[in-house]
Design a protein around this nucleic acid. Structure first.
Lengths: 250, 250
DNA sequence: AAAACTCTTTGATGTAGATCAACCAGCATG
DNA sequence: CATGCTGGTTGATCTACATCAAAGAGTTTT
């Protein structure tokens, strides 16, 4: 389990060079506002599989994902688990005004977060409207995504669920690389079959079977277990059950 | 279909007498800020079953639910529907900065909304931080509720889903009446079996069967089709699958 | 007071996905 | 190079819920 510690931790204190500068909670901040943020921020790294916080534990910071992927999940007493959020670079974790985490937060891949102690961040929100405004916008986006996910969980078939997840990840990956979402797409699946099943409200066996079925039909190709190639994105899109046009807001 | 038009429409321009004054987006506003809001607000009434807006249609206002219940739902091309939100008095509908509704908004019961034209509301948000702050708080609450719902949709059994829904409605009803959530509770179900099924990701037959089963076991009693009596709230709570203590944030 | 609605309940049957159980591939470890 | 470990695949069987179908209860309409 030897993993390279992401470089940014050692380096970057300079917000202007930050890769998520224009999309994170600080996106609207002016130079002087950024300087205040730089005073209270610190980076934390996690290895794939590590837990950032457990549901119910105190969480005295809020944070932006800088690189990697984190998941939010809930667990029932008897162990049933449901993932309720997938945090990608620039997404925000934690809730101003709340001391304990409502969810298990876990590093799905190696992860770097830009953290702010909660109290200073909260007072900053009062004095710096740009932060609150941006956070509102991001929270509204999250709410839309959560509601889209409710449709998936409540009404889609296993096959549609898998296709939807693959399309979402492919799309977000493409948007990070600034490539087009047409024709062939390739990316690494950042989730295990088990994590996928927790996100989709399925068992991992069903996930595996549906992946195999999509592979058999040529809708996806795989290299190793995790590298996915989508030869024709639009064709996979048709399997999601969504409107051909609009669909997910991502 | 003769229904009494809610009185507030004729009467109330006075925010200070508003029943949702202390819980809605305007909760944190000072007297002078309320005066500005009063300038741009207007009431709209809808009868049970009426559509407020269709998904995709332009929605040039945002609004607070004053009395009654509204639902948000999504529809797939082939007609499968999933409810993604239940708006109770004081809840907020619409999204500042977005011109079209992402969901079908429907009056589940007779409904009165306090509306603000979107543009003036947006500029008010910039000049009146109290509104944006409150909206952020409400949106974060909605997001928590949506995530709780994802757990229900993804992992709960039909029986647990029904018990959860009844508990949530009973709880919110009790909080409006300022009564305790222990021992016997009674309330009117504001949803048809079909609406319940759309919310829970079930068919209406399954909803009906599970309601009958809870009734047979004495967990609920019914008077007519819609009036529900919960003789022992804590006993019903045990059927939800949630932690006995915390559970829903509502 | 019969007809037509809407909402609900109940029964018979079918099926998607869960559950239980092997087994395989890739890797790290003694 | 056997050993165990983690993550993934595939098969056989079971079951919770969907689907199809009919009928009851409470309305409004004629």
């Amino acid at each position: 389990m030897t993993r390279v510690t992401p470089k940014i931790q050692a380096a970057g204190h300079d917000c202007t060079a930050c890769p998520i500068r224009h999309r994170a909670v600080c996106a609207r901040c002016e130079a002087d506002e950024l300087q205040v943020l730089e005073q209270i921020k610190y980076y934390r790294s996690f290895e794939a599989g590590q837990t950032v916080v457990w549901a119910g534990d105190t969480m005295d910071f809020v944070a932006s994902v800088v690189t990697g992927i984190a998941t939010l999940s809930q667990t029932m007493e008897d162990g049933r688990r449901q993932m309720v959020g997938l945090l990608l670079p620039s997404d925000f974790a934690g809730r101003p005004g709340r001391a304990t985490s409502a969810y298990d937060v876990t590093a799905a891949t190696d992860l770097v977060m830009c953290c702010f102690r909660r109290k200073p961040f909260e007072s900053l929100m009062l004095s710096t409207p740009h932060i609150g405004q941006r956070l509102l916008e991001m929270t509204l986006d999250e709410l839309d995504a959560a509601r889209e996910w409710m449709l998936l969980l409540g009404r889609k078939t296993a096959r549609e669920k898998i296709a939807s997840l693959l399309c979402i990840i492919a799309r977000r990956d493409a948007s990070l690389q600034l490539s087009q979402t047409h024709g062939e797409l390739r990316f690494d699946l950042p989730l295990t079959r088990e994590a996928m099943s927790e996100y989709l409200g399925l068992t991992l066996e069903t996930v595996s079977r549906q992946m195999s079925s999509l592979r058999r039909e040529g809708l996806i190709l795989t290299e190793g277990k995790r590298h996915i190639i989508i030869p024709d994105f639009d064709r996979l899109l048709e399997e999601t059950g969504d409107d051909s046009d609009g669909g997910f807001l991502v």
